[in-house]
Simulated scan of single mutants.
Amino acid sequence: MTSSQPQLRTALLIGTASALAALALLPYVLALQPHGLDKYPVAPVIVIAAQFVVNGVLCFLLAWAGLKLGAPLGLGAPWLAATLYADRTRPATANWLAAALLGVLGGLVVIILVTRFGQPLAGAAAHTAEPAPWQGALASLYGGIVEETQLRLFLLTLLAWLLLRARLQRPLALAIAIVAAALLFGAGHLPLAAKLAPLDAGIVARVIGYNALLGLPFGLLYCKRGLEHAMLAHFSADLVLHVVAPLAHSL
C-alpha cells in the first residue's frame, strides 16, 4: 500500500457522503425557495443529478487535497482512515459525547443570541416558508459533512499549511487558521441569505457572527480530535437549530 492510498480512499468515501448529503439538503432549500429549480432551462432531475455529481467530485478533490496537506501537520480524518485500513491504528483518544454536547451547546448559544439580537434574516420570515423539522434534519447532514469537508478539512488545513511555511509557530498558525476558517464559514452563508432578503449591515453581521461563533469550536475539534469530531459537533448544532428550535417554536 502506498502512502497516498489511505488519503485517496478516505477522500472517495467523503466525496460519496458529500454527494448524498447534497441530495438530502434539497428539500430544505426547496422549502425556502419553492421555485428554485424553475430558473434552469433543463429538467429538474438533470439539475439534481448535476448537483449530486458536482458536490461529490468537488468534495472528493478538496478532501484529498486536505488529507495530503494535513498528513504532515497531524490533521485529517484519523477515525475514517483507521476504519478503512486494518493496518492503521485507531487514535488513542476520542470523546464523541463531548463533541456532540459541544455542538448542542453551540446551537443553544446561537438561539440565545437570536433572542437578543434577532434572526439572521430579520424581516425575511414573512416572505419565506419555514422548513419542516424533517427537512432541517436532512439539511443537518449537509452541514456536518459537506461544510466540514470544505471549511475545516480543506480550507483550515490549507491556511495552517501556508502559515507554517511562513515560519509561524504551530499554535499560532492553527489559531489563525481556526479563526479565519470560522469567519469564511460565516461569510459562505451570505449568498443564500442574499436570495432570501436584501443584505444590509445587520444581516451581514448576524449571518457571519452566528455561523463564525459555531465555526470556532468546530475548528478546534478538528485540530484536536480530527474531522470526524468536528462533523459530529456541526451535525449536533444544526439539529438544535433546524429541528429542535422549530419544534419548540411550534408548541
Rank of each mutant, 00 (worst) to 15 (best):
A201S: 14
S236Q: 03
I112V: 15
A129M: 03
L183T: 08
T83I: 03
A129P: 00
L67I: 01
I111V: 14
W96N: 01
A132R: 14
P246E: 06
W96M: 00
I48M: 06
R225Q: 14
G202W: 05
A166Y: 08
L37M: 09
W79Q: 13
G15Y: 05
A31K: 02
A11R: 03
D200P: 09
M231I: 14
H229M: 03
L67S: 02
P27I: 03
A21G: 06
G106M: 06
V45H: 08
A212R: 09
L73M: 13
G56R: 01
M1V: 04
P131M: 08
L239I: 15
G144D: 08
L61H: 02
G36V: 07
Y28Q: 05
A175L: 14
A24I: 02
L61V: 14
A49S: 12
P191F: 12
T16S: 13
L221R: 01
T10L: 01
T89Y: 00
R167P: 01
A22N: 12
I46R: 05
D38G: 04
I203G: 05
V204R: 07
A100K: 01
G74S: 10
Q169N: 11
T16F: 15
R90A: 15
G76N: 11
P34Q: 06
A187G: 15
A65P: 00
A245L: 10
P198R: 09
Q51C: 00
F52R: 03
L196H: 11
A50S: 13
W79A: 10
A245N: 13
A21N: 06
A126C: 00
A125W: 02
L12K: 00
I46E: 08
L75I: 09
G215R: 12
A175P: 02
L23I: 13
G226Q: 08
S3I: 02
G118V: 07
I14R: 01
L156I: 03
F185K: 07
G66I: 10
E148G: 04
A160Y: 03
P246C: 07
L239D: 02
Y142I: 01
S250R: 14
P44G: 06
A233V: 05
A22P: 00
W161R: 14
L155K: 05
A180S: 12
L121P: 07
P44M: 04
G107Q: 03
